[in-house]
Computed example of a mutant assay.
Amino acid sequence: MSDIPETLAAHLAREVTSLSHCWRVTRRDGTVSGFTDHDRPLTVAGTSFEPQSGFTASEARETLGLAADTVEIEGAISAATITADDIAAGRWDGATVETLLVNWRAPDQAGTIRTQTVGRITRADNRFVAELDGPEAALDRIGGRWFRRACDAELGDERCGVDLDDPAFSADGTVAALVSADTIRVDGLDAFPSGWFAEGRLTATSGASTGATVRVLSHRVSGEGTDLVLWRDDAGLPVPGDGFTVVAGCDKRFATCKAKFANHLNFRGFPHLPGNDAAYGYATEGQVFDGAPLVP
């Protein structure tokens, strides 16, 4: 909903106007940045809006009903404000973007015309395009629980109950070497068997990527050392000497929940849920029907 003050409304009623757009971006970590499509810096409500990123916006429209409207903003990747590493690390994902309409001759005449969140960012040729989703976009997201054999809780959350601060499920390490484009060799995980951290999360605690979290695809232990294969998503890997914290992974199976975490009483899936094969199955000689659990 637009919030246009009377002073700005009076300016809009004139035959000649001096208008520009400003975007106040608040990241999830609390960092606030300001950008404008005007050719000079503007200060509005205590926020400085800088023009050097060359922000431009696509056509914006608002429709009646519950359809989700989106707007795209485009700008240059700048070492001072928006970096490729920050985009790849997801630091701008989910940021709140307030679009302001400003009289650049009198910046105190400004109004908020929409508030949206960053849904998707794409990069090409040292530029980025951010897709802004309105509140209606939340209606397209599936809510509620999934009825499936696998657990639908996130490891360590309130529904799961596993204490990830337990030394058995988390560890600190250091990157020793880069093995390949998606694999790092690490020190500090010698006490854990192969596969323990597969499907887990690695968070950098030092170096240029401090704070960035990536998913661990594979955890391998061999005679050459301990290797972690990471989901890159175009992000650079931690470099040798960087520290990190990694938490154990969970494949969401009941057997893993019981054997690895001793947390089967909190399992949030339905391991006995019949599959499609049950609809076509029939009793045959030699099958055992003793009422025993299908999942140990």
Rank of each mutant, 00 (worst) to 15 (best):
Met1His: 15
Asp3Phe: 09
Ile4Cys: 12
Pro5Met: 08
Glu6Ser: 15
Leu8Met: 11
Ala9Thr: 08
Arg14Ala: 12
Val16Thr: 14
Ser18Ile: 00
His21Asn: 11
Cys22Asn: 07
Trp23Gly: 02
Trp23Val: 02
Thr26His: 00
Arg28Ile: 08
Asp29Asn: 04
Gly34Lys: 02
Gly34Asn: 08
Phe35Pro: 03
Thr36Phe: 13
Pro41Trp: 03
Gly46Ile: 05
Phe49Ala: 01
Pro51Val: 10
Ser53Asp: 07
Ser58Gly: 14
Leu66Met: 12
Leu66Ser: 09
Ala67Gln: 12
Ala68Arg: 05
Asp69Val: 07
Glu74Ser: 09
Glu74His: 12
Gly75Ala: 15
Ala80Thr: 10
Thr83Arg: 11
Ala84Cys: 00
Ala88Lys: 12
Gly90Met: 09
Asp93Cys: 06
Ala95Val: 11
Glu98Met: 05
Glu98Asp: 06
Leu100Glu: 02
Leu100Ile: 07
Trp104Tyr: 14
Trp104Ile: 00
Arg105Asn: 07
Pro107Gln: 04
Pro107Cys: 06
Pro107Gly: 12
Gly111Ile: 03
Thr112Ala: 13
Arg114Glu: 12
Arg114Ala: 15
Gln116Lys: 03
Val118Gln: 04
Gly119Lys: 03
Ala124Lys: 04
Asp125His: 01
Asn126Met: 07
Arg127Ile: 04
Glu131Pro: 04
Leu132His: 09
Glu136Ile: 01
Ala137Ser: 15
Ala138Leu: 14
Gly143Gln: 14
Gly143Ser: 15
Trp146His: 13
Arg148Trp: 12
Arg149Ala: 07
Cys151Glu: 11
Glu154Lys: 12
Glu154Trp: 06
Leu155Pro: 02
Gly156Gln: 01
Gly156Pro: 01
Glu158Thr: 14
Arg159Cys: 01
Leu164Phe: 09
Asp165Leu: 06
Asp166Glu: 09
Ala171Arg: 05
Asp172His: 11
Thr174Phe: 00
Thr174Asp: 06
Thr174Arg: 09
Val175Arg: 01
Val175Leu: 03
Leu178Glu: 13
Leu178Met: 09
Ala181Met: 02
Ile184Met: 02
Leu189Cys: 08
Ala191Pro: 02
Ala191Gly: 13
Pro193Cys: 06
Ser194Met: 08
Phe197Leu: 11
Arg201His: 07
Leu202Gly: 00
Leu202Ile: 11
Thr203His: 05
Ser206Phe: 02
Gly207Arg: 05
Thr210Asp: 05
Ser218Gly: 06
Val221Lys: 10
Ser222Ala: 14
Leu228Gln: 09
Leu228Asp: 09
Leu230Gly: 15
Asp233Gly: 13
Gly236Asp: 15
Pro238Trp: 08
Gly241His: 07
Gly241Trp: 01
Val247Tyr: 00
Ala248Asn: 04
Cys250Gln: 04
Phe254Asn: 11
Phe267Gly: 03
Pro271Val: 13
Leu273Gly: 13
Asn276Ala: 15
Asn276Trp: 15
Gly281Leu: 05
Ala283Val: 15
Gly286Cys: 12
Val288Ile: 06
Val288Glu: 05
Phe289Gln: 09
Val295Ser: 03
Pro296Glu: 09
